[in-house]
Design a protein around this nucleic acid. Sequence first.
DNA 1: CAATATTACTTGCAAACGCAAGTAACTTCA
DNA 2: TGAAGTTACTTGCGTTTGCAAGTAATATTG
Lengths: 148, 148
Amino acid sequence: MFDLGQYLPYLINRAGARLAVAFGQEIRRHGVTLQEWRVMAALAAHGAQRLSDLAALTSIELSTLSRLIGRMARSGLLTRSRAEGDRREIAVRLTARGTGLTRTIITTAKRYERLSLRGISKSEEDQLKRLLVRVYGNLGTLEPAPQR
Amino acid sequence: MFDLGQYLPYLINRAGARLAVAFGQEIRRHGVTLQEWRVMAALAAHGAQRLSDLAALTSIELSTLSRLIGRMARSGLLTRSRAEGDRREIAVRLTARGTGLTRTIITTAKRYERLSLRGISKSEEDQLKRLLVRVYGNLGTLEPAPQR
DNA sequence: CAATATTACTTGCAAACGCAAGTAACTTCA
DNA sequence: TGAAGTTACTTGCGTTTGCAAGTAATATTG
């Protein structure tokens, strides 16, 4: 009737969930949550960002992110400041401490990635990543088209 | 320093997040949440399950699932009953109404899966699924081995 | 250039989450 | 066989979440 084991959203969700649980517990020792790490990784990879761009980068809902950034600012991982030009925008950037901690966690992150890819060849790995990018893209184009 | 676009956990998470948001909103019209759908799909695919097996199947944390099942039982989608043999176990099974609704949603689910796979060949699709199963498996073997 | 609309966030609120600490039903083993 | 585990959930509690509604800054338009 319905083969879960061949259903792509299921396979993606459970792989993602395992990664999240395993890695989330791992980085707990650094006093950082998964969501915080996602923000830090996005800032490390792309530099300072506006709040809404960060939301897109991390797939974290805007209101959730707004509060998350507040907490992270309070704990000194990053700075939130009004943007220069458009004064509605919030510029978010890592502090020195945030950058340092991110650098440390990146090492662990790469280890986990390698672990998750055991027994998978480089070309298969590339294929996997390429297809995930494609799936993501496919879903982006339909997002802003609900009922009207 | 760190290329997010080539980092597997990131690619999995964002593809999963988009699927979740898009499909979650879609099934809202049936009065069902994503998590509820996941439980229904698991029960439809594997038949009646113990609570802890359901947790493993759905990647939902046990205490969260316990309460979720309670709500779903109250709204008549499924039944929770003590198991025959071991009376600690809870047997969860879909009601007729739950089965019917699941059948309906499965149609939508398959449509979303096709949508997410646009421009991907059958052999690439199989490859993608196979690799996601592998990643999931790779992470399973390290789960129960933290500090001791 | 002043309404009006839109954008970029923030906040209120109720619901959902996850960890840790229960409780009850088996198992094991001395 | 009964005391000490272990397993299978449940529940308390503080935190996080997401939607909807609000606020403030900028754009658009008549």
